[in-house]
Design a protein around this nucleic acid. Structure first.
Lengths: 273, 273
DNA sequence: TCCTCATTCTCACCACATGAAAAAGTCGAT
DNA sequence: ATCGACTTTTTCATGTGGTGAGAATGAGGA
């Protein structure tokens, strides 16, 4: 129920269609509970039962839900899975980028990452890791919500025009993740300025304790920063390796940039694990 | 536009709401093209432009789409990804089952699978593989569409009551995948009867050339078949191992069944790769 | 600056979503 | 079988609110 003030605050029009909103709220209610009986949904959303049934059946007919006769519950249907797949297929880093990231992973013996801007979001489009060099657990393919606290987040924030960065940070806030996390613009802004000039972002235990990350920009044909290549590793394994990490990271980011520039296939040197 | 005959043919009521149907058709149009301009969608779906804009904006406001100003295109939004995640989290096999499947994978040196019924679908809820023992490429977490041609599909088909099996097969057809694929009920039904009595399904190059699979049932507390545990391996590696594979498969399926029966945690024996 | 295309607004029309109430299924237990 | 306690669907009068042609506005590009 969008209040008048909510409308005033947010710029977006809330002239929205009731049916569609309700349909999605029903779908999301089912998604949130994993499975839900019609009555439960009706109660939780305060929508009369016949209407809920209409919407649930509509969703089931369209394949977004399925009705399980045995439990008399609705669950998410194939279309939800397909939407997730489409999203993934559209956004996962292209093959050469994945190869370069894999090679970075092997070269440095660290987890490696590739992330991009999309609209006003930051999306992690590829993670390369293994049992010996695991990725940071909270990081996985998908939207990244803690840009202020990760190396690739910071390099991407540093590459944003000021107003957009402010929008970004105000929309998601700056969560405290470790004692080292920078949680004020006063701390972050100068840091990002330095990140921007140096062209590399380091992150020391700001996201997870005892973990260090580094990231450098990846640019497209027009020289615009479009993404970031990053690594993460236990801080203990980083001592004295900063130079090596930086140069290897830059080398691989350069490969990624030239792929994006040329479109021509960059052949990554074969390596042994 | 559902015609009168369409209504007559399919049993499902097509009293559906136009708005909702249109909304999803727009969403799916965007999903299918990866990204789409408003005009493209309007043309393809034959919906007037202002209406398409309303629906696209609605979807964008709800987070199912995002509007990319630079390309003037709509793409799938965060909610689509979340739906996919919810689906996955809800359906992925529980941890003990995954462990048991992993152990089966290691014990036999084959890719290993766990699949279940859900409603009238067959869902592959876990794959365990590695570089040395890769899974069959087309198989991945999610809905399984070629039950007639895989071992776990056949064991699950064999466990269905007759009318449901017919529904299942008629709804999806029986695609020809290899020269060995059984594509008629005349061939399949006796085979499934035998599968049911023996309690194991073998599949020899019916799904992919030069690949062999085997599957056995997994049962819940009431003794009802609820899933299947399966392996796949190159046929060349199978010669003379049928007995060993069968007993190891049964052993692990038994562990899975007793987990489902007891809920108590079955401790899988640690193994070395 | 103009021109073109993308996007939103306006508004009268009436389709169709709505939800209370009642009927029809479904299933388990006695 | 017979009841009872549900889940689910149908009915139907009401008026909300979705609709789309057309016009206006906005955003870039040459």
């Amino acid at each position: 129920m969008p209040t008048a003030e909510a409308i005033a605050q947010s710029g977006d029009r809330v002239s929205n269609s009731a049916v569609i909103q309700r349909t999605f709220s029903v779908l999301e209610a089912v998604a949130a509970s994993g499975c839900a009986a019609a009555k439960t949904v009706a109660t939780r959303l305060e929508i009369p039962l016949p209407t809920v049934y209409r919407l649930l059946n509509e969703l089931a007919d369209s394949g977004y839900l399925v009705y399980l006769k045995d439990t008399k519950r609705f669950e998410l249907g194939p279309k939800c899975f397909e939407l997730g797949l489409s999203f993934q297929q559209r956004l996962v880093a292209p093959h050469p980028i994945r190869q370069i990231t894999d090679q970075l992973h092997r070269s440095l013996g660290t987890a490696a990452y590739f992330a991009i801007y999309r609209g006003s979001d930051i999306i992690l489009t590829y993670c390369s890791d293994c049992e010996k060099h695991p990725r940071l657990r909270p990081l996985r393919f998908g939207f990244h919500e803690a840009a202020h606290a990760t190396a690739f987040g910071k390099i991407l924030l540093a590459g944003m025009p000021e107003p957009q960065r402010t929008d970004y940070l105000e929309a998601r806030g700056m969560q405290v993740l470790t004692p080292q996390t920078m949680i004020s613009r006063e701390a972050l802004d100068p840091h990002l300025a330095e990140v921007a000039t140096r062209g590399i972002a380091w992150e020391h235990e700001e996201f997870l304790p005892r973990q260090t990350c580094a990231a450098v920009p990846v640019r497209n044909g027009t020289g615009m920063q479009v993404g970031a290549m990053a690594i993460s590793t236990p801080s203990s394994k980083m001592v004295g390796r900063a130079k090596e990490v930086e140069s290897t990271l830059r080398e691989h980011a350069g490969l990624a940039s030239s792929y994006l520039r040329g479109g021509s296939v960059t052949v990554p040197v074969a390596e042994h694990a």
